[in-house]
């Protein structure tokens, strides 16, 4: 069969499964559901699966993509339900289709951050955070391949809004997914470096949606 694309969610306890372990988990889930993944040729054959934009351990997502190939024919409309039934807790397959785009064309990510403040007022924090992210540039120290370097993350942030909840601030950000890739964790790390008084006691992120350059939803 042609190349297929899976869209799935990785939430709750499953957020701690690493990228490599997830590949393995997927492979076994396909086998349990009775599908045969296509293997590469060669001395050490491995299933031809590829998960776009590896998710950091501890980060949730409702918009993960995985490309794969199957041996033989399969009714792809049934595939999401059959796979979800044999997944560990927290992984839910929502769609399966023949992709018309290349993953390279994926440009933006909508991420939702939850910044927890134990002893500070979320309303004050939200306001200060909005001011902080509105700056023209946000230059932080960042690990690169050549050691520590300076980097301005602002150009990689398309939009960002912070809103106070009961005991946390919700951060909605649309950030660059590729070229350059911005790890959402750097949104909180920038606070630690540049405005420690705004650094949350704990920050967690969820990927909500993926987009093309023109902000159409990516499929």
């Amino acid at each position: 069969m042609d190349k297929l694309r899976l869209r799935f969610e990785k939430t709750d306890r499953a957020i701690y499964i690493s990228h490599l372990d997830l590949m393995h988990t997927m492979q076994r889930a396909f086998s349990r559901a009775g599908y045969e993944l296509k293997y590469s040729e060669g001395f050490n054959p491995h299933p031809q699966i590829s998960i776009a934009l590896p998710l950091s351990v501890g980060m949730a997502s409702t918009c993960e993509l995985m490309d794969f190939k199957l041996n033989g024919e399969a009714d792809i409309a049934l595939l999401p339900g059959k796979l979800t039934a044999v997944m560990p807790e927290g992984i839910r397959v929502t769609d399966c289709y023949v992709p018309e785009t290349k993953v390279a064309a994926l440009k933006y990510l909508w991420v939702e951050g939850c910044f927890e403040y134990d002893d500070r007022d979320p309303h004050e924090m939200a306001e200060a955070l909005n001011d902080f992210y509105a700056a023209d540039e946000i230059v932080i120290e960042k690990k690169t391949k050549r050691g520590m370097g300076q980097s301005d993350i602002k150009p990689a942030i398309r939009s960002i809004q912070c809103e106070a909840g009961e005991d946390a601030v919700t951060v909605q950000a649309v950030i660059s997914a590729q070229e350059p890739t911005l790890n959402p964790a750097l949104l909180a790390d920038a606070l630690r470096q540049l405005a420690p008084e705004l650094e949350p006691d704990f920050a967690k992120f969820t990927r909500r949606e993926i987009y093309h350059e023109n902000m159409e939803i990516f499929h």
Binding site: D12, R13, A14, Y16, I17, S18, D21, R28, A29, R32, V57, G58, V86, M87, P88, E89, G90
Partner: peptide, 10 residues
């Protein structure tokens, strides 16, 4: 390896 502390396996 936090996944070993969470349960939730198939």
């Amino acid at each position: 390896k936090p996944a070993r502390y969470t349960g939730g396996e198939y």
